[in-house]
Design a protein around this nucleic acid. Structure first.
Lengths: 339, 339
DNA sequence: TTGAAAGCGTTACCAT
DNA sequence: ATGGTAACGCTTTCAA
């Protein structure tokens, strides 16, 4: 006996059973199609009896719309992204779209991902992977697929984006640490050529300056847990270790805090203060109580859906750059301001 | 000017440019097809010049294989799942499959998800959502789609599954807490009718008994952070609060630890010991240093891919139940054994 | 409103 | 090894 894949029920099967044409079956499943209520009912019940579902693949072929959004991610270790993915998936599902997931290594080339995106004829792409965003974005645009950069911007302003207030957030954090009276303030950068890390750092320097302080030390954490832990080890091994650390995101801040307390016996915030960026769930956990600048997921995801689907539905609409408002959230990982 | 979606390059276009038949183009992109090296090269270069990619949608229609695996998840808040998703996506991509993501609310009905799964003609399904697994699994099986339960089992043994050693893990944890000399040992359950929570609890009770101890208190945390925090509040508000707590997963253990320290001023492990399950990254963070039983992601994902793809490629192969070995990892959230 | 038929971009089969 | 042609399961004309 040879392996049998059960053949799927087709519109033709339903048509036969209902004694109507196959076109009628199609219309019965197309909202707003011109079909009588009676016929629609007859078709629907035949379909139900047979367990028929329209084949989305066949439909895509003719409509040239897959109702699939490609999401490129490469950093699920940072819990900000799973939370985004979850919210985005729900929001897209509510609008009749599904997510096709593409994971890419930080080191990897963009080609295999681009290939997949194009082969599956995704209706749009959300790029949430720092490293290969610029090239991918350009190639997708060239191929005529609507693209959206999430939490990053590109040199090419022609690519739409949704970001948080990286620069303003950085500035407020700089002002805060200056106002707390810190003298040896360090920055743990993310990936050096990422727009988020650069923008946050630029704002941070501005904030420090406006508070009469300046940057004392700087290490790269590459947006990884281990990278940030190593950066923290270098910082705290100095003869003059920092008394405040701003890490370019919460994930790295948490790594650095672990090193400070467990390996160097430092107290937070008495010996050293920490600030992150994102306001992930773990930042709220009492063990960290991390001061941070928020990137609120709900409005960010809402912006992504609005923007991307408008791009999908009107390919000629102009690129937009949405910046979602966040806020400085002061918790116990920093000391009170001096006055 | 009306919005113009750029028409995609088709095999026909490539054929014209290369001066060959459209079948030849197809063969040039089909590994192992009968085509001369010279023709393949000619087609390939014409394709490259035009930016042609085979349309996976059209291919699926004729091959009756989408090379898409549906993944149903409903719990990305527990960081175990994003890590699994990440690893699974990479492993499937390496085998030429992509993940189509379906998110479902814990409360939600299975129907819309099932509908999506069936419409997109996914080649297989990984169910990683506790609540609606049993029904969905049954419906998928009825529809002839290979299904795999991840981290859960179903009453119907006919559905394949990959799980950790829930019962053995629970038992070892029970023995550990008994051996540490605890007298008031509590369990924070997950979702009551989930197989993981039940199996872990059963093993836990066995382990306690074999160590001469018994369960002192029990609360349900519903596998949510807030649910577990609330459960912990109930436990520690008692006149005789527990001196050890086993939570059905790390995520809940971390929630409970936060309540114990921040709201009740308890020291861990001096006043109360904690144990979780999964060994997520946060369990290793020094702030928690959580004793736990591991569910190692790499072998679990490898098993998922092997099992599911064998089901996809040979639909008649028998259901299998793979149990992946874990280990008890003792960290600082528990005290040393008495002897 | 309904049915017949064309066509979406592939692969698979049958010739040559 | 190569080309022609029939599917695959739908949506979308076009007639009736």
């Amino acid at each position: 006996m040879t392996p049998t894949r059960p053949r799927h029920v087709t519109a033709q099967d339903v048509a036969r059973r209902a004694g109507v044409s196959q076109s009628a079956v199609s219309r019965a499943f197309t909202p707003g199609a011109s079909i009588s209520e009676e016929l629609r009912e007859r078709v629907r019940s035949a379909a139900a009896a047979l367990g028929y579902r329209p084949n989305a693949i066949a439909r895509s072929l003719i409509t040239a719309r897959s109702r699939i959004i490609g999401v490129v991610a490469a950093y699920l270790q940072n819990h900000f992204y799973p939370d985004v993915l979850d919210a985005l998936s729900r929001a897209l599902q509510a609008r009749g779209y599904q997510i096709l997931l593409f994971t890419a290594d930080l080191s990897e080339t963009a080609d295999p991902v681009l290939d997949g995106l194009l082969r599956y004829r995704v209706d749009g792409v959300v790029l949430a992977s720092t490293t290969l965003s610029s090239r991918l974005a350009e190639e997708c645009r060239a191929a005529g697929i609507p693209v959206l950069l999430f939490n990053r911007t590109s040199d090419a302003a022609s690519v739409s984006s949704v970001t948080g207030e990286n620069r303003r957030g950085g500035r407020l954090i700089g002002e805060l640490l200056a106002a707390c009276g810190h003298r040896r303030i360090a920055y743990i950068a993310g990936i050096e050529n990422s727009s988020t890390s650069r923008d946050r750092e630029r704002g941070f320097l501005e904030g420090l300056a406006s508070g009469g302080a300046r940057l004392f030390a700087r290490e790269a954490g590459h947006y990884t847990f281990e990278g940030a832990a190593a950066a923290a080890r270098r910082l705290f091994s100095r003869a003059d270790p920092p008394d405040a650390v701003f890490a370019a995101n919460d994930h790295m801040a948490i790594a650095a805090m672990g090193v400070a307390t467990a390996e160097f016996g430092l107290r937070i915030p008495e010996d050293v203060a920490f600030v992150g960026f994102d306001d992930v769930e773990a930042a709220r956990w009492p063990a960290y109580s991390l001061t941070t600048f928020s990137q609120p997921i709900a409005p960010m995801v809402a912006a992504v859906v609005d923007l991307l689907l408008s791009l999908v539905e009107e390919p000629d609409s102009l690129p937009r750059h949405v910046v979602v408002t966040g806020e400085l959230i002061e918790r116990r990982s920093t000391r009170p301001r001096l006055r």
